[in-house]
Simulated scan of single mutants.
Amino acid sequence: MNWLLLFEQILNGIQLGLLLFLLAAGLTLIFGIMDLVNLAHGSLYMMGAYFAYSFAGWTDSFVIGVLLALPATLLLGIVVEVVALRTLYDRNHLDQVLATFGLILFFNELVRIIWGPAGLDLPLPDFLNTSVEILPGIPYPTYRLAVIAVGLLVALFLYLLVARTRIGMLIRAGASNREMVGALGVDIKLLYTIVFGLGAALAGLAGMMAAPILTVEVGMGERILIDTFVVIVIGGIGSIRGAFLAALIIGLIDTVGRSILPDLLNLMLPQAAASTAAPALSSMLTYVLMALVLAIRPAGLFPPRGA
């Protein structure tokens, strides 16, 4: 086994995990506090990527494009919550699923109308399109290190926001007992709008960070949304700490598994069969882990206090 390659794959797994965390943190807050099943969360991820592409093109700066796209996605999330989702809070989850699935179709068609059906590439600036030698003989892309740094900074920001501020206190109280928070005079509608806007901004940031690595295309949010739901189920619905740790676990299992499993399967299967089976088995491992967690700890590994 190539240990240098394994180390690089571990870093890739951390990077993927932190991207999943950006998505899962917003979704777990929305689900845990608002009790809203939001299938359109992946569409906000997609819109963040398209906003970054457009703003970067207009300003000729990737960094400025991201800085402009972030408030644009937050504003879009607020508009979606006020216009489309506010009437769904008292409805059952099936109605929420159908309504937010309709939003997926709406955003996909909106993207086709504005940006066209073809995939787009968001180029990196020269200072990010380089490599850094993190250890002797191990170069690693600068941009992927930047993604890891941004993910860790956002995790720290969310910890301070939720644990050390008044808004965070209300968020934690809302996750534990929404009716009591409303009875104490807190404007629940405003709290929900703030939470949804924050979740939209986090989803959009994940899309912006992923855009230079992946192709910006219609429907890019649906594929990663499934992994995001797996993360919040494993971590515990409503738990930021759980989302962070579960996202890292899933990222490492998926990425490192794709690197290790072919070598292990080559010991038992022909090379062609091993290369085909390894990615599928790596993806299955995340669902096997989710099933084990649900069987042992139905509330997740790190449920919020009081859950």
Results as ranks from 00 to 15, higher is better:
Gly199Ile: 05
Tyr53Thr: 15
Ala201Lys: 01
Arg297Cys: 09
Val82His: 01
Thr130Val: 14
Asp263Val: 14
Arg258Val: 06
Ala291His: 15
Gly197Gln: 09
Thr228Cys: 00
Tyr140Ala: 06
Gly42Asn: 07
Pro304Glu: 14
Glu81Val: 09
Glu222Val: 01
Ile188Lys: 10
Ala243Gln: 12
Ile194Gly: 07
Gly257Asp: 04
Met46Gln: 05
Leu74Gly: 02
Asn266Cys: 14
Ile249Glu: 04
Glu179Ile: 08
Thr215Tyr: 00
Leu245Val: 00
Gly57Gln: 03
Gly168Trp: 07
Ala246Trp: 02
Leu158Tyr: 12
Leu11Cys: 09
Gln9Glu: 02
Ile14Ala: 03
Pro123Phe: 04
Pro139Arg: 03
Ala175Gln: 08
Asp35Pro: 13
Val82Gly: 08
Gly48Ser: 13
Leu94Thr: 14
Phe51His: 11
Ala183Gln: 12
Ile250Arg: 05
Pro71Cys: 01
Met208Gly: 15
Met34Ser: 10
Phe31Trp: 03
Asn92Met: 06
Arg164Gly: 09
Tyr159Pro: 14
Ile78Cys: 01
Pro298Tyr: 04
Met290Gln: 14
Ile104Ser: 08
Asn129Trp: 07
Arg223Trp: 00
Asn2Cys: 02
Asp227Glu: 03
Arg144Met: 13
Ala155Arg: 11
Ile226Phe: 01
Ala280Trp: 02
Ser259Met: 01
Ile296Ser: 14
Gly185Leu: 08
Ala52Phe: 07
Gly13Thr: 04
Asn2Phe: 00
Ala52Thr: 13
Asp121Cys: 05
Gly236Asn: 05
Glu217Phe: 00
Ile64Gly: 10
Asp254Ile: 02
Leu5Gly: 11
Leu252His: 08
Leu18Lys: 03
Arg223Met: 01
Pro298Ser: 11
Val181Ser: 08
Phe51Ile: 10
Ile167Met: 12
Leu294His: 06
Val231Thr: 12
Met290Glu: 15
Asp35Tyr: 06
Thr100Ile: 04
Ile253Ser: 01
Trp58Glu: 15
Leu152Ile: 13
Ile296Trp: 07
Phe157Met: 04
Ile260Cys: 05
